[in-house]
Nucleic acid binder design. Sequence first.
DNA 1: TTGAAAGCGCTACCAG
DNA 2: CTGGTAGCGCTTTCAA
Lengths: 373, 373
Amino acid sequence: MAPYEDKPTLTEFGAFSKLYAKVNGKLAGKVNANSKVRMPLAITIRDIAKKAGVSVTTVSRVLNNKPDVSKKTREKVLQVIADMGYSPNAMARGLIWRKTLTIGLVIPDIGNPFFAEVAKGVEHRARERGYSVIFCTTDSEPQREQEAIELLCSKQVDGIIVSLSVESRSVLERLEKQRFPVVQIDRKVPGSNYSAIAVDNVASAYTATKYLIRQGHSRIAHITGDMNTKTAQDRLLGYKEALSDWGLRLEHQLIVHGDFSKGSGILCMEELLSRTPLPSAVFVGNDLMALGAMEAIGKHGLRVPDDVALVGYDNIDLAASLQLTTIMQPKFEMGQLAATTLITSIEKGEPAVGDIILDTMLIERKSSAATVL
Amino acid sequence: MAPYEDKPTLTEFGAFSKLYAKVNGKLAGKVNANSKVRMPLAITIRDIAKKAGVSVTTVSRVLNNKPDVSKKTREKVLQVIADMGYSPNAMARGLIWRKTLTIGLVIPDIGNPFFAEVAKGVEHRARERGYSVIFCTTDSEPQREQEAIELLCSKQVDGIIVSLSVESRSVLERLEKQRFPVVQIDRKVPGSNYSAIAVDNVASAYTATKYLIRQGHSRIAHITGDMNTKTAQDRLLGYKEALSDWGLRLEHQLIVHGDFSKGSGILCMEELLSRTPLPSAVFVGNDLMALGAMEAIGKHGLRVPDDVALVGYDNIDLAASLQLTTIMQPKFEMGQLAATTLITSIEKGEPAVGDIILDTMLIERKSSAATVL
DNA sequence: TTGAAAGCGCTACCAG
DNA sequence: CTGGTAGCGCTTTCAA
């Protein structure tokens, strides 16, 4: 009648764990199957102690590499642990240590290659430092962002890496008051003091737009990301500044609002294709939308870059294959850095200071080339 | 001197939690800052009880929606909980319930859009059912697969969704012995009894190859995925069977082994491009490698499909944009189904039975079109 | 060098 | 309907 919900410890139950009789007190003695005493659902430190003929304290000492254990005892205990395949219950430890060695990751969408790559960086670095990662996706909906954070807090994660919409400021403020370790990634919530790992979106959007202008374009459209994010706002800003600096008129009908998804890229591009005269170039808020834009352009029998030049943002894997000119940002490294920053902050017991702004780079490819390669 | 490592409960500390004096026994009385008594690091159920003027038992009842609490008391307690922003410590609960409402997800690479989409499906469904997801990546290295599973077990997850290399059979067997809930996704470890959510890789690879043959190709190469996975083995098998059924000779020099990564796609294609005569078509083990293959082909001044036709596998987002013919498999749905299956198994207390094989579909696009669109 | 015992925050059992 | 109390599995005093 082994209960299915047993917690695993990667061992089969040995002869040792057939029936559990409480010994340290009232209930010692034989316990039959009908007893109300709950069976231990996995091997515990007590099982190890008994088998090794030592106290739980000693086992605990071995487990935690404390001194004050004779070499002989230590080896004996280690042996039993290996034999039984015991692994300590992280929850029980967490209760005492007030540490779970787990961090939270709150991102809009793991399906977006940008965030997938960021998540990869986070997970890799976290693993190196001995932490696990619980991830939550929010589609940048403030409601879900808050729920995710509350959930992670109740799960007692040691810290959280977040990428939030601008509306989640109050949530962050509450965490700040408790001095809870948080690091922002990709987008910083305005007014929040938590440090962020990001790029200069204004400057790089400016660069992208300037580049198109220099290519001879004067009717340049922009498909924005989710305007609820600082990222999208900043990229729009950079676009506007570039136009302004080069004396180009800002045409509101050339700015359409997407949400960073490929689908929205299609829709937005469709809309732009109905404008007359047609824009000759589009700075798209991210690569995923640029993908959609390409599809829309193709569907209308037009060609990139001949009819419409395109510049994206992110340099996700497919940008190279698609010959999409784009702004490269170091996604994996951002994830790694965020994890490093957060974990250091957790372990030092003090908040990270200052933002880390990483470099971006314009990568020129066919989608915007004046001359076809 | 508020310690930074405080566990957050989304509340600022109220006047209530300035200093904590043990009351239920020995240590009652004033406790000064030098005391060895650890300060409570977050609001606990006892704080709520005290503030509401009831027992912890009653608060617990309210927390768990048990009956046997008068409406008035319940409301009072709820009010205090809301006021203090209390949220129960999931670890303490987990210790008792032997449930963490957390599941593990072990995948090779979150950076691969296929797995990112699967992960998305898992997370969405898990959230709907009240579970969180810890994810671990392994690059299909058996060592890391085992470590990931052991880690997740020690974190007491309620179950695990895995996508493993064929070598991890023994690890699964140990989990099986303990009747620990596991569901396999995408690839099934041969010999394991845990049910899997996957597609028929042999049949679909057969379909893809057959399709190329029907397009008139007779020199068809294959770039395999990581041959340590059942997925890659099966796709190779389907490829071979199709060749055989159509009386085409199997040329070993036309089979090169990649690892499902884009980089390996480039390398493998380079290798194929050195063959003479050139294969006129390549069935690539997944879209990511097909991406790489396309780049390699372009770099050599050749064109798709005129010089080399390409068929991929997965139908990731960019396949549409790249006009890549591919085998579609329902990634998001696979993730959802795996989560549903696992959680149902966890909650019913019995293993899921049988595999779920989902339908695939050949999606024809330009990369293999006989006539350019 | 060892072990007994007191909890971490919570739920479950029992008695009122 | 309510409250006291014994643990969940572990670490950490403190005493031997």
